[in-house]
Design a binder for these strands. Structure first.
Length: 290
DNA sequence: CACTTGACCTGTCCGC
DNA sequence: TGCGGACAGGTCAAGT
């Protein structure tokens, strides 16, 4: 599911709603989603949340006294906070497109209780995970080590990305999806950015100039910032920390629009396979010519 | 070594 | 309707 804009939207919601809340109980309905021993689980109970950070597509929920919950949502993971009191407080209850009224549901894998408030980890396909880590080691350890610079990190520029991408001959799309090169890009925003700059996804990465990488980075940031403004992309499962869907796909130029006319030139969009992923492009605006 | 493919899972959609 | 197959936002390990 979630790429950088979706994970960041979840992070913002959780970082607004969770800090100060004390973890009182954990229900593991599908223990493989959160493999931990009883002693580990007991160790986190009673600790309050300090804040929520994002590393690429991963999340770190920092708790008191040096422990953190590392979370990866993979394709279909959700973290949704339900506060029973908020319905009374705001009278009207949740938005009609919200999923929170029906939780837990069959995709609920783990429930974190903060007194009367619940944080649901839902994950239809069970690819996502939660792991307990020492805060000090979270960045260097097994979970998020090796991540490249964040796509929205302002200290990264075009030449820097060009160096990181190196002289790889694999398709440019495969390089964009490699989290060790650049963290946060997934299938949707890779396709959108490649369309924006008119580069065919199968173009060997070593054919791109430094200028190309700079334009690609700028395009990635533009589509991601637009998506952040719109609450992310919801294809099927994605919802934010309050159960709300994202609206970006209404504005997508190519993703999930195969066969439909290019919004720029009218040519029917092609669907191909690149880096093992379904890939949509405009054969006219993104010629494979280098 | 660089690069690609299969596996992890459940659910949905499409064609026969 | 039913059934098989392909496909879905990500990332590893294993393969070529």
């Amino acid at each position: 599911m979630p790429e950088l804009p979706e994970v960041e939207t979840v992070r913002r919601g959780l970082d607004r709603l969770l800090p100060g809340r004390r973890l009182s109980a954990i229900d593991r309905l599908w223990p493989k989603s959160f493999p931990a021993g009883d002693s580990e689980l007991n160790a986190v109970l009673g600790r309050s949340v300090l804040g929520v950070r994002r590393l690429g597509k991963g999340l770190l929920i920092d708790l008191e006294d040096g422990l953190s919950l590392a979370v990866h949502l993979k394709m279909t993971g959700q973290l949704v906070l339900v506060d029973p009191a908020s319905q009374d407080r705001f009278g009207a209850g949740h938005p009609s497109d919200s999923l929170v009224d029906s939780l837990p549901d069959r995709s609920t894998r783990v429930v974190f209780h903060f007194g009367p408030v619940q944080l649901y980890f839902n994950d239809q396909r069970k690819f996502g995970w939660i792991k307990l880590v020492e805060t000090a080691r979270a960045l260097e350890g097994e979970f998020f080590s090796g991540l490249g610079p964040d796509t929205l990190d302002p200290s990264l520029n075009g030449p820097g990305l060009a160096v990181r991408a190196g002289k790889r001959r694999s398709p440019v799309k495969a390089v964009l999806l490699d989290q060790k090169v650049l963290a946060g890009v997934g299938n949707i925003y890779a396709d959108e950015a490649l369309f924006a700059v008119g580069i065919h996804p199968l173009t060997p990465a070593d054919r791109l100039t430094t200028e190309d990488w700079a334009r690609l980075l700028a395009a990635l940031r533009q589509v991601m910032n637009l998506s952040l403004d719109l609450g992310g992309s919801t294809n099927r499962n994605y919802v934010d920390a309050e159960g709300k869907r994202g609206a970006y796909l209404d504005f997508a130029q190519v993703y999930s629009r195969a066969g439909q006319p290019c919004r720029r030139c009218g040519t029917p969009l092609d669907k191909i396979r690149a880096a093992g992923r379904g890939t949509t492009l405009c054969p006219h605006c993104q010629p494979l010519n280098r």
